[in-house]
């Protein structure tokens, strides 16, 4: 009868909520998730393959002054344009760029979002 709802209701009272308190807590993000980029400047050759393959033109090659005074080209990733397809990771010859499991993308200033 309709009273079948009552045992379910009592059972649900003692269950943990299915949601978590984001951003302090988070679900387990699986390996291989396409999240925020990690970039290691030391490995980068400056070839620009990532900028050429990017579907949304989110990567721009900019001149960066090195410690020894020389100038090297490095990618600048605009996360607000990025579609997180991971093609930059696939084409990078030295694996200098790869997508990590980081998912929070909030920032107060533009340097937090554009790197």
């Amino acid at each position: 009868m309709k009273l079948k709802i009552i045992p379910k209701l009592i059972a649900n009272l003692f269950k943990k909520p299915i949601t978590v308190r984001f951003p302090k807590q988070s679900f387990d993000i699986p390996d291989g998730y396409r999240g925020k980029h990690s970039f290691s400047p030391n490995k980068c050759l400056g070839c620009g393959a990532c900028a050429r393959i990017c579907p949304n033109k989110a990567i721009e090659m900019v001149d960066i002054k090195q410690k020894d005074g020389s100038i090297k080209k490095q990618p600048k990733i605009n996360l607000s344009k990025c579609c997180f397809c991971g093609l930059c990771e696939n084409v990078c010859p030295t694996k200098a760029i790869h997508l990590t499991k980081k998912i929070p993308f909030t920032g107060d200033t533009s340097p937090d979002i554009i790197k």
Binding site: I29, P30, G32, Y33, R34, C83, F84, C85, G86, L87, N90, L99
Partner: peptide, 22 residues
Amino acid sequence: FSIITGGRVYPTGFICPGGLRR
């Protein structure tokens, strides 16, 4: 989907010409 393709909703070309991305 997020375990297999790396994204919840958008696989962003996981099924690619020639097979699969990974």
